[in-house]
Simulated assay, not measured.
Amino acid sequence: MFLYLNGTIVKEEEAVISPFDHGFLYGLGAFETFRVYNGHCFLLGDHINRLNLALKEMDIQYSVSMEQVKEIVQALLLKNKIQNARIRLNVSAGKAPLGLHGEAYEEPNVIVFINPLSKAGSELTEKEAILLKTPRNTPETAFRLKSHHYLNNIAGKKEMKNEPDAEGLFLTREGYMAEGLVSNIFWIKNEVLYTPDVNTGILNGITRQFVMKLAKNLKIVVVEGFFKPEELYDAEEVFLSNSIQEIVAISRVKNIASFAGAKGTITNKLFQEYQKVRERLLSITEI
């Protein structure tokens, strides 16, 4: 496969950055992962806005534009001869002296990775969830960035070593529902859609925001808050969201509770609405 590195498309095995990159040394970097459907970068504008906000928070002097990313993605699709893909747009702080750096980073490394995906399906998928013992860590700043700091997620993944196809669910240290390893979580009770508040310290996922907008357009009441796991266990439907897997129904929280899974009425309605627009929207504001 070919990737984009600082203005050039190169083979993956030929991509090189400095070992003094503070993205490598200190985890200073941010990224966005989004899906390309038949050449269309779904919700690209929202991903770019969140990335630019993270770069500003880290004092990385770089700003990504819509046209720039679209041009890079189209070049990678052409070079790799694919039309459906997973894209990771990554900006790390770049080279700087050893030690903690209190000044702005002015020479970041910009990398765009691409992986082929099969054509998006029309059927709602289903998996089970497992409640993790590993608690969700708190954000390093006032809100959680989609940054290189992923040890907490990896610790949760290691806890699930015998469950490779399930999704782990984090609680906060205070015992409130937080999010999945790579997803946000929703549940439905009495036709009301519930999801943890961003003030629990979760990532405000782009697909999370999109699902809430779809729900409101369908006149479904959406409630964000601080919820104990027992409130999730009492739900009729549960599902996860992320930019690559879209909406995934949850059949059960292992050894604790069962739900409607892929038969969930509201989950299916939201998935059907998702399918209608995934090859044309660039921003949540367009619906």
Rank of each mutant, 00 (worst) to 15 (best):
E159A: 07
K146S: 05
A178R: 10
S65P: 11
E224N: 13
L98V: 09
Y233A: 06
L132Y: 05
R173S: 09
D21M: 03
K79H: 07
F170Q: 00
A262G: 11
F259D: 04
N255V: 00
Y4L: 00
L55D: 03
V73C: 11
L43E: 10
A155E: 14
G180M: 01
F2M: 06
P164G: 07
M212Y: 08
R35C: 10
N6F: 02
L77S: 12
K269P: 09
E286L: 02
F20P: 14
T285H: 15
E128T: 04
A120L: 04
K79E: 15
W187A: 04
L77C: 08
K158E: 08
R144T: 01
I60D: 13
A215R: 14
N49Y: 07
K70C: 11
E67Y: 10
Q83I: 02
G180A: 00
V223I: 07
A85H: 03
F143Y: 15
L181F: 06
E13Y: 01
S18W: 03
K127D: 07
R88D: 09
V223W: 03
N84S: 09
K228H: 11
G121S: 12
A104L: 05
Y176M: 11
E71G: 14
L5M: 04
L28Y: 13
A54Q: 06
F186D: 10
A215M: 05
S241Q: 04
M58E: 09
Y4R: 05
P97R: 01
A257T: 04
Y4E: 01
V16C: 11
T141F: 08
T267C: 08
G27K: 11
P196S: 03
E106N: 13
E57P: 08
N255L: 02
E231T: 14
L193D: 11
V211F: 06
S243P: 00
R252T: 06
L171S: 01
G201R: 03
F143S: 13
S122L: 03
V238Y: 06
G168P: 03
M177A: 10
S18N: 08
V222D: 14
T265N: 12
G29E: 03
K95H: 10
G201S: 03
